[in-house]
């Protein structure tokens, strides 16, 4: 059980050393390279992700800036449009008032003309009626001269009354 056998001891040492060299060359070298590659890959991925994150953040800020600018432009455009609309509205109202005034003036003029026309027609009608009445009342004994004078007096009277 406790026999010392140098042959077995030596073979054990040689077996172990050969095994160690074999395992180192066959497997461990490659294995450590894979581990290093993976660690490098992970490191690269993390760095790349962080870079992307930073880029995304800067892009977001840039877009935010753009959006703010667009918002400002929109607000300005709305303000301008509102102002322009108000001006246009005022102008239209002014124009409408002007037109309405013109129409009113023209109407007044027309009314005046119509009034004058009516007055003239009324005068003529009154004269005719007066003549007719006078003719009926007086019928006879009035000279032509007296008639004219009477007509003129009536006309003058009408004119005074019209004014």
């Amino acid at each position: 059980m406790l026999n010392f056998e140098p042959y077995i001891l030596l073979v054990t040492i040689i077996t172990f050393l050969i095994g160690m060299v074999l395992i180192w060359n066959v497997f461990l070298k490659r294995f450590l390279r894979v581990l290093e590659d993976r660690a490098a890959g992970v490191k690269d991925n993390i760095e790349s992700a962080e870079k992307n994150k930073t880029e995304a953040e800067s892009l977001r800020l840039e877009y935010q800036k753009h959006l703010d600018e667009i918002d400002k432009k929109v607000q300005r455009a709305i303000k301008d449009a509102t102002k322009e609309g108000i001006e246009l509205k005022n102008e239209i109202i002014l124009k409408a008032r002007q037109e309405a005034k013109n129409v009113l003036d023209k109407t007044y003029e027309k009314i005046d003309l119509e009034k004058e026309k009516m007055l003239k027609e009324l005068k003529t009608e009154v004269v005719n009626m007066s003549v007719t009445i006078a003719e009926k009342i007086i019928k006879e004994n009035l000279s032509h001269k007296v008639n004219d004078r009477m007509v003129d007096e009536v006309l003058a009277e009408i004119e005074r009354g019209g004014k």
Binding site: G19, L22, I23, V26, F27, L28
Partner: peptide
């Protein structure tokens, strides 16, 4: 010795398979 060779062979074969 034979058993220790079997052990070493098992280890090496395992590592070769993993490799």
């Amino acid at each position: 010795v034979y058993m220790s060779w079997i052990v070493m062979a098992l280890i090496i074969v395992f590592f070769i398979i993993v490799r």
